[in-house]
Write a protein that binds this DNA or RNA. Structure first.
Lengths: 200, 200
DNA sequence: AACAGGTCACGAAGGTCA
DNA sequence: TGACCTTCGTGACCTGTT
């Protein structure tokens, strides 16, 4: 049973990927395409509709938040395995690029479009990695703060996600703006972090 | 398989380009030209007819809308991969300079601050205010900083809202790019936070 | 064992340019 | 026009959680 119905793997994957975007699709015919193993790929709208009609439930799909938690947990585990925590625990700040390397590998699971090259945001991460290497602990409220910021970011994200209405002409410009802003936000977060008492 | 039939590249391309214009072509003979690798170019009408007869389906050709979508996506990706031209920002020792609000408007060629009108993004500000009220800690300049971010994002949103017109049907694409960036940053921050000693 | 999500090679669209 | 390239959705297979 996948999402409440016995399905093949492909339909499972299809549903997982598309169930939340029904509105985005349009049938080029009459919304009643017959869907079978050979015609399945022809009309996403109708295929998805059939999924729903057969009882598949989008509620069974994990929320972004839940998926995030999974991912994080996984990453944390990965880090723990890589770094023997108990092991003498000397730490100090050997400028070894451990943190950097680690960042790269664990991010690969998340970022597929950046084939190896560093981008704007990575620079930010480097800075933070540096701070971590210094091993200064964050006070509890400080780490709380960081989490809060994440929450805010998420809020924002959802906000934008649900706002797809209008139409845009100058996409290029807009995208560039987006890009710049993300970069800028990243730096702001970093600066904010730097200002926390633990780092002073 | 191309358009439902095993074909060579040339027929694939030919069909893609012409399948939707069958009516526009006329055979100068009797609509029964023989079509082979050497005569193919002589009569488009008959070549195309042969394509259809052999089972090629024009339904497999992406609609204009879909093609437009692709194009947009491509553009968005291109922008995302752009590196910041300026700002070598070493990060170095960082620290207190943070306090100065000169986060700088290096990007402000694109986005200007705009206090005043209220809209959805203000909710973001509200959230922050709440966080501030709650647990105490944000210094004034810190909340200022956060407000700043909200404002900037507001600007962006307005940019989109005010532009309507066609050509580009899909703001969603752009939004997705934005989300993507935020999401990625969020993950990084969270992961890094988790690796701080305070969390262990 | 069940059932979520993640991964990644691959097929088949469109795009490019000599 | 067509050989060659890029892109993205698909689905078989894997991982992780309950």
């Amino acid at each position: 049973k996948n999402f409440n119905v016995f399905t093949c793997e492909s339909c499972k994957a299809f549903f997982r990927r598309n169930a939340l975007k029904l509105k985005e699709y349009k049938c080029s015919l009459r919304d009643n395409c017959s869907i079978d193993i050979t015609t399945r790929k022809l009309c996403r709208k109708c295929r998805l509709q059939k999924c729903f009609d057969s009882g598949m439930k989008k509620e069974y799909i994990l929320s972004e938040e839940q998926k995030q938690m999974r991912k994080i947990r996984k990453q944390v585990n990965g880090v723990n395995n890589c770094k023997p925590a108990d092991d003498s625990d000397t730490g100090d700040s050997s400028q070894e690029s451990v943190a950097t390397t680690d960042t790269k590998s664990s991010c690969d699971g998340i970022v597929h479009h950046n084939h190896g090259e560093s981008n704007d945001c990575d620079q930010g991460v480097v800075i933070i990695d540096k701070l971590i290497d210094d091993k200064r602990p964050l006070a509890e409220w400080e780490s709380t703060r960081l989490r809060e910021m994440m929450t805010i970011l998420n809020e924002l994200k959802n906000k934008y996600k649900s706002k797809l209405v209008a139409e845009v002409t100058d996409l290029d410009m807009a995208c560039r703006a987006f890009s710049y802003n993300c970069e800028r936000d990243a730096y702001k977060f970093i600066r904010l972090s730097n200002s926390l008492t633990a780092f002073q």
